[in-house]
Design a protein around this nucleic acid. Structure first.
Lengths: 190, 190
DNA sequence: CATTCGATGTCAGTTACTGACATCGACAGT
DNA sequence: ACTGTCGATGTCAGTAACTGACATCGAATG
């Protein structure tokens, strides 16, 4: 144990989400976040590279997706491996729906935060493509599957968050994958 | 005519691309860009909202894509309308390949610029989805087609820029669309 | 008990970005 | 020609994100 309260990083993340929710991202200063977490501004920047990163700290989703897809038999078609991966993500999100809603409301209200979210998704796509290539999927199928997977995730996540009922994420993703197959087959996606 | 040199906005864009290329984005200050354009920092911020936006000023691509897709007969399947749109974009890019390479080199070297590029592509996707919906394409097909279209464009653009030969963009896009169809049909995308 | 070490604090500095106000020259109306 | 309006620019002061250099503290270690 150190001489300080433990989990400074987590305290900063919690303080930031609260303040961003209460006043909005722009109306919050890093100094205020740090103060609420019992720290100084300088210490904030030792834990997070910038004012936005505090909402995007973990890499658990990317790790999970990569792990699950890497575990699927190589004989599985890329699109089916993707489906399994999305299924696994869906479970995790279902467990944290209120948190996801709160966080997404903050992000939706600010373009700078949306930019950061998009680059995180791009990084997810790159990791996914790497994993697929390691499984023997050739280019450009690996990149295409990865990009399309993230595209489906984006649309599905939006719908899952916006749903007034609390429908779980997995069936949403499954339906979208079916819709995608219909669209690329030249149908109207109905 | 005003009392100043014309096209201040264009001069700023040109000066910025030069400086970002020579020294890198971070090592360039807005004051330097303004000075090279014969203006002041304050005036820079009247033309561009921030230091990054100067590389992303136009909306010509989005306008072109929307216009072309809006002009395709409604009986055309969404995926085919998309193909026509990508074809039109390809022509424009082929005409500006050296500029596109220079600009993309700058963007590739800096994550902040990549973030901005990604949100511009997201805006493109949203506009595309709107256009498809206006043409009677239902949800979620409209959103999926739009997201997938941008995904294909991203992969294709990368390959087009990176190609050592100067292969035009249109066939690259066509091959990727075929690869996508194969992947979503459950194949290995070969 | 002295030393090392990691996490934090303090402080000064740069730069992106903004608001308020001044200036200049073109143009329109008289 | 006179004058007032207007749009683009300049000037200046201020805030806040972010960084580098250095100090401090207490815990673990030998």
């Amino acid at each position: 144990m150190g001489r300080w309260e433990p989990n400074a990083r987590g305290r900063l993340a919690e303080a930031a989400l609260e303040l961003y929710s209460e006043r909005g991202f722009e109306q919050t200063t890093v100094a205020e976040i740090a103060k609420r977490a019992g720290l100084t501004e300088r210490t904030y920047f030792r834990h997070y590279a910038d004012k936005r990163e505090v909402l995007f700290g973990g890499s658990e989703l990317q790790d999970l997706l990569v792990e699950v897809i890497a575990g699927v038999p190589e004989s599985t078609a890329p699109i089916d491996a993707l489906a399994v991966g999305l299924e696994a993500l869906a479970e995790v999100f279902d467990e944290r729906r209120p948190f996801a809603r709160k966080r997404q409301a903050v992000i939706a209200a600010n373009p700078e935060l949306q930019e950061r979210e998009l680059i995180k998704l791009a990084s997810l796509s790159a990791a996914l493509a790497d994993t697929l290539r390691l499984r023997g999927v050739p280019e450009p199928a690996a990149s295409l599957t990865a990009e399309v997977g993230v595209a489906v995730f984006k649309v599905g996540f939006e719908r899952w968050i916006a749903a007034s009922d609390d429908r779980p994420m997995a069936p949403v993703m499954r339906e979208l994958l079916d819709g995608l197959k219909a669209v690329t087959a030249g149908g109207d996606g109905a």
